[in-house]
Design a binder for these strands. Sequence first.
RNA 1: UCCGGGGUCGUUCAAUGGUAGGACAGCGGGUUUUGGUCCCGCAUAUAGGGGUUCGAGCCCUCUCCCCGGAACCA
Length: 561
Amino acid sequence: MSDTPNSPDTPAAANFVRDSVRADNEQGTFGGRVQTRFPPEPNGYLHIGHAKAICVDFGIAEDFSGVCKLRFDDTNPVTEETEYVDAIIDDVRWLGFEPGDVVYASDYFETLYTWAEHLITTGFAYVDDQDGDTISAQRGGYGKPGVESPHRDRPTAENLDLFRRMRAGEFADGSHVLRAKADMQHDNMQLRDPIMYRIRHEHHHRTGDDWVLYPTYDWAHGQSDAIEGVTHSICTLEFDSHRALYDWYLEHSPLPGDQPRQTEFARLELSYTVTSKRKLLQLINDGVVDGWDDPRLPTLRALRRRGYPATAIRAFCDFIGVAKTNSRHQIEMLEWFVRNELNRTALRRMAVLRPVKLVITNWPTGHSESITLQNNPENADDGSREVEFTGEVWIESDDFKAEAPPKYFRLTPGAEVRLRGAYYVKCTGYNTDADGNVTEVLATYDPETRGGSAPDGRKVKATIHWVSTAHAIDITAALYERLFAAEVPGERTGDPFDDLHPNSREIVQGKAEAALAEAAPGQVVQFERLGYFAHDHDQPALFHRTVGLKDEWANVQKRGK
RNA sequence: UCCGGGGUCGUUCAAUGGUAGGACAGCGGGUUUUGGUCCCGCAUAUAGGGGUUCGAGCCCUCUCCCCGGAACCA
């Protein structure tokens, strides 16, 4: 076991949810049993916010040797699709969790229906055939009591008859609903005779056309929990005011076992990020991004494509903990976890993304030699590789300046730097085109410094990366900035789209060492001194910048301004 | 307006009546063949008032601020 926060072995931090589960176990509340569920609605792709929920739901179950099922909350046939179901299962597994079972709220439609009849029979539900606006108006308002429906005291037999005919498809959408007979005066609006069933003549992704009657979330959720034996129903804060209803429904249902308990925690929000399904969909539909797996998106598919390791996401989620405070975590912290993981695991390679040619004027014409470089200084087991060096190499254009600003350690006329693993070179001059752009940097090398150290002990202040022009391969790199330029997108104007970063993706053509041609699809490597880059799954020469390296030089420049 | 949930360094999470601590971010230094990593150090917080107590971030009380709640969405 390691004590680094990024280790998958690190036990998750204590938090109020875990503590309450532990207390339940000690008191024998559920006979020592722990069962949770992760209940996404299959109407969109999972994003980083879901990752936290997944880590909480599956994590708690794991900690107490319980089970966590993946349950699709598919109670609304008009928005839900099978496409999302498959993707969600895939994403959960990618994160590293194996669902105890994959189930659907729609599996329980028949039981739910039976229980609804039970509520009718016991006098706790009735059929209302007023229109939606009327029902809504009768609900009252904050601080104002509601008024009871004229159908509230409909006789049981009539309720049963109407409800069965609703199921049989005799009525039009919106004409009838089944409502709980709770309390129209309750301070909590959720208890003011909520809708249990509505009529939707719609095709359902699993039950097809078997049903025209669909349960609402509140009626379906707690009952599904009870049916499958969930003990701890952990959800996000916005359901807090639903808990009273959750309990009410359970108390009035013929449960097969223990009554599950709902606990709420704060969802994960990230700076510079939107996670609303509606907004994500809009970004795609408006063509701002290419699709659900565009690396600029916070969806799990996108983060995966971008090179975020699942282990880093999990470590982040475990580390930020679980609380009830509404909070927005800084994306910098997530990026720290990503770098921390990749620093240990990513092989180093040299790539030049904005190339300028460096000509070594005293290099023997036509000579080429092989340089041995470590694959990962953090892990000797990753071994080494051979890289060809010649008298003409690509270097990063940022690594040369005709006139050096203060504290600039790289190449400038008269300055000596190390070409990583190869030789010291001293800049002797440069050539420009008619417009004054640097076309070639000229330098001499010191043959005594092979391998990158000088026998006379003299030091250089910079080491720069390089790629032999004769041996370079062409690559394309996608450089991403944050999709939104504001910490809280939409805070100024109410519309996150007003805060879109004007240039969140830059495509550059670069040069790279030959070994990069062997990168596996999806593999993440470090381009030395530049950042971590994920090899695209489909396009062989395309690399997505996962995250840059911490850049002290950029800080120096920023401070100088 | 009513009900509910919150308020601890810049951000976030701890401290469950007994020295307010960690991480990220920031700043300074050391090591370094990545201006990376690593190491060392510095600075910064209990929303406000009253009370209980030997002792309060924690308990009581009043005030202020933030979030959620009146879909036939989840």
